[in-house]
Write a protein that binds this DNA or RNA. Structure first.
Lengths: 323, 323
DNA sequence: TTGTAAGCGTTATCAC
DNA sequence: GTGATAACGCTTACAA
């Protein structure tokens, strides 16, 4: 491969001068610049990025770590990547499949100087383990976390969740079932709080959160449809924590012969493509902006050129699964 | 940051010996190995991967290039990434948004030694332009291409398409409309051929391919539903080239009051999650295996340890949009 | 079995 | 304005 020395030789200058030309750095006379540039052209020269990274101690590469690629995560990955590319960063995708060891491998990439920063969408290890890697570079997460060194693009979903519950109430629903993703998570705890406040406000009897815990996937949603079919007394609405769950529930319920919103109502969460396709009422909370904010936060840690994060908000998207 | 010299100093050996220990390379006495290992432990040392890459002239990094992340591409990205990780490779994701310049930037990453190989899912530049980059490393694509230097995991979709058409015929459909993605593409040309053969076989009058060209997205599928609503004489089936198109068509048609398969039939292509959710009959052609094969081909070009690609095949998945 | 030293391709600090 | 030259952190002949 042709390198700086080759260019220097052809152009009749030193490699220091070549470097100056390439990087527009320091004083170079017009004439030498031209000589160098034509040599670059002639030899079809491109600087070796490994050498630059080694020298500079930075790679202009950021890692995205996630357990797998769900539709929601796709939105995050896509918008983060686009934002990063726009600022000259390159993005590495690392899938952990929820294996803490694989996550560790990914974190090690930052320690071994292959990554300048990390967007850890969903973690697998303890926060304390992850925290110990922040000394090698910035880590931003999508999850809710209270840590002095890990930033988060999380927004408390209390308000968003309440938005959905109020909509159900306004449309006559009084026995609402909440499908929670993981009651140990702070995110879910906010939802539970919103539900409890809501029940108190309208004098309804809340159901225990434990009854519907760990409902996460499309399949889980489908199971709920079957569960519903077996109930004597049926609830009149489901409030979910993701469009995926809502999609599974809605599509399976239709297969079982139910019609929505006549038989019962369902509200999703995320406003991803699938909720549009299945006409599911949902809560939008601008995931794409979260992704961009994640990049901005990492960028601000790495670069002097600061980017200001955008404000996030909730919107209720009324479709055909609620009255 | 602590480096080899530091370890060497602490362990009382030369950095060459440290290297041997780290890489299990060459003869090292048990006792020195232990000294080195404890020094590594003590200083919490990790080798700098930039230095290794520079020295070795390879990065163990492969790029995935795609215009954006659709659901189908997600399957490709996911399985490729997992296969690559399993073999110790790291994966870079580069989104081009169909901008040839951005694709060029991504290809340049290989030229500048940041990438060892590339999985170019869908291209934006001319094949000849892309070919010129194969001298810097292997390029494998998902698209159909006849090139001496670019490999492809493509499979001719003639058989798969015919599978769908025959199914429609068997269920009484006689006026079938084909929604093509891009009639200039070889892939589509195979579909057209299958359709023509099919028409001749059953003595049906084929419609011109130009009538339904460039139908690619969910939105395009939705438009077709509207088009259908305005027709006096309605076709009795749609054969599509992707589940996305089928999904848009089916969901919009339902919104417009049609019921499937009573009013008409629809067959998708890909068998991605969405076709399951919407109960769309579709053609499966094991995209995940294609992704794995793509990695294997790149690996085989890069490494001495050869991996054998898997055979691919088509399966008709009958669901609720055909009789 | 271990050490020396050249080199991978840059950048950046000095001189001149 | 430009050129030496010393890093950056590692691998690998070649010696010893």
């Amino acid at each position: 491969m042709t390198n700086m020395k080759d260019i220097a030789k052809i152009a009749g200058v030193s490699s220091a001068t070549v470097s100056r030309v390439i990087n527009n750095n320091g004083y170079v006379s017009h004439i030498t610049r031209q000589k160098v540039e034509s040599a670059v052209e002639k030899l079809d020269y491109v600087p070796n990025s490994q050498a630059i990274s080694l020298k500079k101690g930075a790679t202009k590469t950021i890692g995205i770590i996630a357990p797998n690629i769900t539709e929601t995560i796709t939105v995050l990955v896509k918008n983060f990547t686009l934002a990063a590319q726009k600022k000259g960063y390159t993005v590495i995708l690392y899938l952990t499949e929820n294996d803490p060891k694989k996550e560790l491998n990914a974190l090690e990439l930052m320690r071994s100087k292959q990554l300048d920063g990390i967007f850890l969408i969903i973690r697998s290890n303890d926060w304390s383990t992850i925290e110990s890697y922040t000394k090698y570079g910035p880590i931003v997460t999508w999850q809710r976390v209270k840590s002095p060194c890990i930033s988060s693009v999380f927004i408390d979903q209390y308000d968003g969740y309440l938005l959905g519950l109020e909509h159900l109430y306004a449309n006559g629903c009084r026995t609402i079932i909440n499908l929670y993703s993981d009651i140990r998570r702070l995110n879910t705890k906010s939802r539970i709080k919103a539900y409890e406040y809501f029940c108190k406000k309208y004098d309804l009897t809340p159901h225990s959160p434990e009854l519907f815990n760990n409902i996460n996937s499309i399949q889980d949603g489908e199971h709920i449809a079957h569960w519903l079919a077996n109930q004597e007394i049926k609830p009149d609405a489901f409030m979910t924590s993701s469009d995926a769950v809502a999609a599974g529930l809605v599509s399976q319920a239709k297969r079982l012969g139910y019609s929505l919103p006549e038989d019962f109502s369902v509200i999703g969460f995320d406003n991803i493509e699938i909720s549009h396709l299945l006409d599911i009422t949902t809560i939008d909370y601008s995931i794409h902006k979260q992704a961009e904010n994640a990049f901005k936060m990492i960028n601000n840690d790495l670069s002097l050129q600061k980017l200001t994060p955008e404000e996030l908000d909730f919107t209720l998207i009324v479709r055909k699964t609620t009255k």
